[in-house]
Design a protein around this nucleic acid. Structure first.
Length: 486
DNA sequence: AAAAAAC
């Protein structure tokens, strides 16, 4: 909902800030919804996208999350559906006329909430469709009739198969976070869905980055699209201060709680590369009295929802997340994000830190890195075309250890407890000497041994081969798509 | 290497 909030204009916003939502010729019913929410001025992407979408043109939009993208496409879509009412259909029948696809369930839910809010005073109906929850309520809503459907691809196709949805009248298609959908291997699903739609339709595609693959996708799906680009692609916001702290693998968890305590953070997302890592870190933080919760794909949809709601309400102060939350999640006023792990994919770094410094506000992006991360760091700095500031985590002493197994960790534990002024060590003195637990995550704990160091170049070379092959495979897929269409 | 998404 922070999407369209008017903001302190930065120099580049000045023209946009002078425009008002009233200037677009939107229906009074839409303007009323906007007024009630206190939205007066469009964000730059909204100012650019709304008129173009209203004209019925295809759009290729490059926009980071937090730029007001959702309102940028949903407001004009609602307007178009209102203006071109289905005269032929009986009033009881509401065919799906606009379809909005998103990569994650949470994002689908949020977009749906926004669409509902903007169309509140119109006769248009909308519903959201995604997996992990009971199909029946969705089926009931679709039966009752909706003009706008917001969906994740898998469950949508499920409904198609069950014949509980009819897409033969869909005039507008939106692909939100298209780059993410490609990354997640949704291309075949996208193609299947598009084949179900009328050939004559309006297509809107939004992507945080303009990779060659995205351009190919745009070329195959869009019809003479108008390009809208607000932020430089792959650029990080100037409002975000990026910091790096070098720590050892064993120190990471304590470093996170140290940073949270030291800065008095009350709203922070911590990104972990693994689901198990996210869960463990959350448990660790809770044990230290931090109000933390984990959100990742192994949690039930209900748990994910509850964690997100609690976080938005402030009941949870630290949300430990995998990349399920890297893109799209609309969480307002995020002053800080922490990378517990550096992401494997440099683009994900951009998305993660895009969770902060939004809508003109300042933000901090703090990343922990270890010796093993050097390569990832190089990739990231190459992508964002800047060096990230390396700082010392001054005053930090690890008080507990990741694993009790490695000798260096134990030494650090002893050293830490001697210098530490707090009493956590005294409260639980036996902790450092317990025998190792049975289930040790091999990925998480990589001991420093000469043999692993020696084998590293080989492993790296293999990894390069794989990642080099991937785009080609995608390109081949896209090529097939192009041929199939022509 | 991981994560996400349909049952």
């Amino acid at each position: 909902m922070t999407d369209t909030k008017s903001q302190t204009p930065s120099p580049t916003d000045q023209t946009a800030a002078q425009v008002r939502f009233e200037d677009f010729g939107l229906s009074p019913d839409i303007l009323r919804a906007l007024t009630e929410q206190g939205y007066v001025h469009p964000t730059p992407i909204q100012a650019q996208a709304i008129p173009v979408v209203l004209q019925g043109k295809d759009v290729m939009g490059a926009a980071q999350t937090g730029t007001g993208k959702t309102a940028g496409f949903s407001l004009p879509i609602i307007q178009r559906l209102l203006a071109h009412a289905n005269s032929s259909a009986s009033p009881a029948r509401h065919p799906v006329r606009a379809l909005i696809l998103t990569p994650t369930r949470e994002l689908a839910d949020q977009v749906a909430e926004n669409v509902k809010a903007y169309s509140r005073f119109t006769p248009l109906r909308s519903t959201v469709v995604f997996g992990g929850v009971d199909m029946n309520p969705q089926t009931a809503a679709l039966r009752a009739g909706v003009e706008i459907v917001i969906a994740t691809p898998g469950r949508l196709l499920d409904h198609v198969q069950q014949k509980t949805i009819n897409l033969s009248q869909t005039q507008i298609l939106v692909m939100d976070e298209a780059d993410r959908m490609l990354d997640m291997g949704f291309l075949p699903d996208l193609q299947r869905i598009i084949n179900l739609l009328p050939k004559q339709r309006q297509n809107l595609m939004f992507s945080a980055t303009f990779s060659p693959e995205i351009k190919k996708l745009a070329a195959s799906f869009l019809n003479q699209p108008q390009t809208i680009e607000v932020a430089r692609s792959n650029a990080t916001s100037d409002n975000v201060t990026q910091i790096l702290y070098k720590v050892s693998e064993e120190e990471k968890r304590d470093a996170v709680s140290f940073i949270i305590r030291e800065r008095g953070l009350k709203q922070v997302i911590v990104f972990s590369n693994t689901k198990i890592g996210a869960s463990r870190l959350a448990v660790h933080l809770v044990k230290q009295g931090v109000k933390a919760a984990a959100i990742h794909g192994d949690k039930s949809q209900n748990e994910r929802m509850v964690a997100l709601e609690d976080f938005k309400r402030g009941e949870v102060e630290v949300l430990v997340a995998t990349d399920v939350a890297a893109r799209g999640l609309d969480i307002s006023e995020m002053p800080c994000v922490i990378n517990f792990d550096l992401p494997y994919n440099a683009e994900d770094y951009v998305h993660r830190i895009g969770r902060t410094g939004r809508a003109g506000a300042k933000g901090d992006a703090i990343s922990l890195h270890t010796d093993q991360d050097e390569r990832l760091l190089v990739d990231i700095e190459k992508l964002i075309k800047q060096k990230i500031v390396r700082l010392q985590l001054s005053g930090f002493v690890a008080t507990s250890v990741h694993t009790e197994r490695t000798k260096p960790a134990r030494e650090r534990f002893d050293a830490g407890s001697r210098h530490e002024s707090g009493s956590r060590h005294d409260a639980r003195p036996a902790r450092g000497y317990q025998p190792p637990r049975e289930k040790v995550d091999p990925w998480f704990l990589k001991p420093y041994t000469p043999s692993t160091t020696a084998s590293l170049p080989v492993a790296t070379a293999q990894a390069e081969e794989v990642s080099a092959a991937k785009p080609q495979k995608r390109a081949a897929l896209l090529g097939g798509l192009l041929k199939a269409r022509s």
